[in-house]
C-alpha cells in the first residue's frame, strides 16, 4: 500500500520518461550541476561514471558534453561508464563492464583517455540494502572508498568527485576522511532526492592529494593500506586491531540543489499540473515504476506466482 501511494507523486519519474532518461536519478545530477556547474565547463573533456548502470548519469554526461557544450572539436572528449552489470549503449559513452576495485580497470580507463587523467568522476552506486542500518551505511561507504581508490589513480589535480551517500550515524567519519584529499567537501541534496530518504551526495571539489603520496591499486591491499601515507585513516596506530578510540568526525556544509520552483519529490502532484518545460498537461497514465529487469529472486517470484510457495504445512 505504502509503495503504491508513492508512485503517483513521482513527478521526476514521469519527467525522466518524457525526456528519455533511464532513471529519475538523472535529475539529481542535473540539479547538482545547477548548483556547482561542474559539467558546464567547456574545457571538460574526460569524465568517468562509476557504478553507472542503468546509465542515466551517463546520459546526462553525454548530453552535457556533446550537446550543451558542443564545440568545433569534440574529438578529445570522452565519457567512460563502468559497471559490473552490462549496460545498453549510450551515444558518446564508452561502456566498460568491469570491477572498479580491479587494477586492470584503472589501466583500461587511462588507456582509453590516452594516458591523460580524468577531470570529473561520479558514482551513483548503492549496494543491496539489508535493513541493518549500520551495515548498509558501512557497505555504502566501502563502495565510496573503492570508487575513491580508483578515483585517486585517475583524477587530475583540481578534479571533481561526487558520490551518493546515506546520511547515517557515520557520515561525519566519511566527511573527515575525504577532507584529506579534497580542498572542499559539501553534502548536497538535490530537490529530486526525497526529503524522506537518507540519500544525499558528497561533492568533493579541487582534488589535492598529499604531495609525496602515490596511489597504487593492488588487489591484495586493504583500503587502509591503500591510503597509507595520505593521513586518511587510522593515523593513530599501525595495528589491524587496536583499543577503541574516538574517530575523527567532521560535519560539512549542507547545500540544497535545484531551485525552489523545481518539483518537490515529497509532494503529491495532481494530474492537471502543467509541465513548465513543454507546457503540456501531464499525461494521466503513468507506467508503474520500473521493476528490476532480472532480479536474483526471479525464480522465487515465478514459483510464488504458480502458487508453489503457499503455506501447506
Amino acid at each position: 500500500m505504502g509503495k503504491r501511494s508513492k508512485d503517483k507523486r513521482d513527478l521526476y519519474y514521469r519527467k525522466a520518461k518524457e525526456q528519455g532518461y533511464r532513471a529519475r536519478s538523472a535529475f539529481k545530477l542535473l540539479q547538482l550541476n545547477e548548483q556547482y556547474h561542474f559539467l558546464d565547463d567547456p574545457n571538460l573533456k574526460r569524465v568517468v561514471d562509476l557504478c553507472a548502470a542503468p546509465g542515466s548519469w551517463s546520459q546526462v554526461l553525454s548530453r552535457k558534453l556533446f550537446v550543451d557544450n558542443k564545440s568545433e572539436d569534440d574529438s578529445g572528449k570522452k565519457i567512460i561508464a563502468v559497471d559490473l552489470q552490462p549496460m545498453s549503449p549510450i551515444d558518446n559513452v564508452t561502456c566498460l563492464q568491469a570491477d572498479i576495485t580491479h587494477p586492470k580497470t584503472f589501466n583500461k580507463i587511462l588507456e582509453l583517455f590516452g594516458n591523460e587523467k580524468a577531470q570529473f568522476v561520479c558514482s551513483d552506486g548503492a549496494p543491496d540494502v539489508t535493513g541493518l542500518h549500520d551495515l548498509d551505511e558501512y557497505v555504502q561507504q566501502q563502495l565510496i572508498m573503492s570508487a575513491l581508490q580508483l578515483t585517486t589513480c585517475i583524477l587530475e589535480k583540481g578534479g571533481v568527485f561526487i558520490a551518493k551517500i546515506f546520511r547515517g550515524r557515520d557520515i561525519d567519519l566519511l566527511y573527515s576522511q575525504l577532507g584529506f584529499l579534497f580542498k572542499k567537501i559539501i553534502c548536497a541534496k538535490p530537490r529530486s532526492s526525497r526529503g524522506t530518504s537518507l540519500e544525499a551526495f558528497i561533492v568533493c571539489l579541487d582534488y589535492c592529494p598529499p604531495k609525496d603520496w602515490v596511489p597504487k591499486l593492488d588487489l591484495n591491499k586493504s583500503v587502509t593500506e591503500f591510503f597509507e601515507g595520505c593521513n586518511i585513516k587510522e593515523i593513530h596506530n599501525n595495528s589491524i586491531i587496536t583499543k577503541w578510540y574516538e574517530e575523527d568526525r567532521d560535519i560539512v556544509d549542507f547545500m540544497t540543489c535545484g531551485s525552489l520552483d523545481a518539483y518537490d519529490s515529497d509532494a503529491t502532484y495532481h494530474i492537471d499540473v502543467k509541465d513548465e518545460l513543454s507546457n503540456d498537461l501531464l499525461n494521466v497514465s503513468l507506467n508503474p515504476v520500473q521493476m528490476p529487469t532480472n532480479p536474483p529472486y526471479k525464480r522465487a517470484l515465478e514459483l510464488k506466482r504458480k502458487g508453489k510457495l503457499t503455506r501447506s504445512i
Binding site: S222, I241, T242, W244
Partner: peptide, 8 residues
C-alpha cells in the same frame, strides 16, 4: 574492553 578492527 572494546577493541576496533580496521575492517567490518
Amino acid at each position: 574492553r572494546e577493541q576496533l578492527v580496521e575492517e567490518w
